[in-house]
Computed example of a mutant assay.
Amino acid sequence: MSAFAGKVAGLTGVPEERLERLAGGDLSEVLLVRRPDGRCSVAKGGPSVGVEAAMLRAIAGAGVPAPMIEGEHEHVLLLEHVPNDRVFSIGAWRSLGAAIAKLHGQTDDNYGWASDYQFGSVALDNRQGGDWPHFWGEQRLVTTARLLDRPWRERVERLAARMEALLPESPRAALLHGDLWSGNILVAENRLAGLIDPACYYGHQEVDLAMLTLFGTPPEPFWESYGPLEAAWEERRSIYQLFPALVHLRLFGSSYAAMVDRLLAAVGG
């Protein structure tokens, strides 16, 4: 196996041959650790173990299911293994809606997070401040597009210059998961079992909802359970979906160019 597997084996005392690669792990190595007493843990690699652990604790502190932290080591995060069946039933969607509403009920005085973070090679500028249009336009869109080809950069920069006219000045700073899609949502027995792989910060709650609808459409019970949405939120959705689309373009290449182009065009960018 890999050097990471060797390190996990050394930390846990579990032989490398008992470590199993888990599905996903596009941006970091993830292993299932089967311990001799029958317990299972998850070992995840990454450069910001302490930051991710703090984010998972923040989610759990909001009363939302998240894996328990079993250990923090250099570049290795050990987590409770959360059994899940991947069946997104109506009950699971309803449970998710209530949990995300509870997560978004946690607020702060500023947007951002105490520490920067990253998706693979994409750095997230989490500097805290009180100007939401600036945070989204500069610290999410412009920063993410900075290493793209010039035509993309210029289109994003022109859009960012219009953020004050397109986004509310000071929406409630809600605790966000930050990467809310089905792959980071664990469900079991018609309920939410846990949220994983967070990229938390405080921001407009519509950011999580926009991400959740980028690759799919939650059914009506999710929205009923989540609660009322702000007026004109669908008009802002493309602006918020543009950030994860830019991240995907950066990380996974030109197959996401059409998505970025469509979202930019939808908001006049």
Rank of each mutant, 00 (worst) to 15 (best):
R94L: 09
A257F: 09
V76W: 02
V49L: 00
C200H: 00
G178E: 06
A245D: 10
D179Q: 13
E72F: 11
P244V: 05
L141C: 07
I185P: 01
E72L: 06
G13P: 05
R236V: 08
T107G: 06
F222W: 10
P133F: 14
V64K: 00
A258Y: 13
D116I: 12
G97L: 04
L246T: 05
P65L: 01
R39C: 11
V247K: 04
L186C: 10
H75W: 07
Y111I: 06
D149A: 12
D108A: 14
R21W: 06
L175T: 03
G10S: 09
G6E: 08
A245M: 08
A43C: 04
D149E: 12
V156D: 02
V8E: 02
T217Q: 15
V247C: 08
E230V: 11
T12I: 07
P65A: 02
S255K: 13
M163S: 03
N110Q: 14
A66P: 01
Q118G: 10
T213I: 09
Y202C: 01
S89M: 02
E17W: 07
M259T: 12
G203V: 05
H104F: 06
A60R: 14
D108V: 09
P65S: 01
T143P: 12
L27R: 01
P219N: 11
G269M: 02
S95H: 05
E224C: 10
G24P: 04
R250N: 15
L147G: 13
V64I: 04
R57F: 00
G38H: 00
G63H: 05
A173D: 06
K102G: 10
R86G: 08
L192M: 08
E20L: 09
A231D: 10
V30H: 01
E72R: 10
V122W: 10
